[in-house]
């Protein structure tokens, strides 16, 4: 109970940056999805830590919602990856380059 809030925040930031690192460097769509999950959970850690910090349950409840949304996001993400694979025979995110000028 005596861990200072800074550490939670740092942990959260570290997780977020790790997720971001994955997104920036990996090319596999599944890795992308996992990285996004890590970032979402970094946010969750923040929410819960500050719920404890302020003695307010709202953060905790919100973390639950975020988890539900993450599940939804994964469902969609996997669907997109499936389509991606069907169209390009690959899950490499650098292969589809039609989103451009």
């Amino acid at each position: 109970m005596n861990v200072p809030i800074e550490y939670f925040v740092l942990l959260s930031m570290a997780l977020f940056s790790i997720g971001l690192f994955g997104i920036l460097t990996r090319r596999n769509a599944l890795m992308f999805l996992m990285s996004v999950e890590i970032m979402v959970n970094a946010a969750n850690i923040n929410l819960i830590a500050f719920a404890l910090y302020h003695g307010n349950l709202t953060g905790q409840v919100f973390a639950l919602f975020v988890m539900a949304l993450a599940a939804a996001e994964v469902a969609i993400g996997l669907g997109i990856i499936l389509v991606l694979y069907r169209n390009f025979r690959d899950v490499d995110v650098t292969v589809p380059t039609t989103m451009r000028w």
Binding site: L69, L78, G79, I80, L82, V83
Partner: peptide, 16 residues
Amino acid sequence: VAVVLDAALDAALVLA
């Protein structure tokens, strides 16, 4: 959230 999850499920099925 329940609705969103439902929608996500359906969307995933459609996409897949």
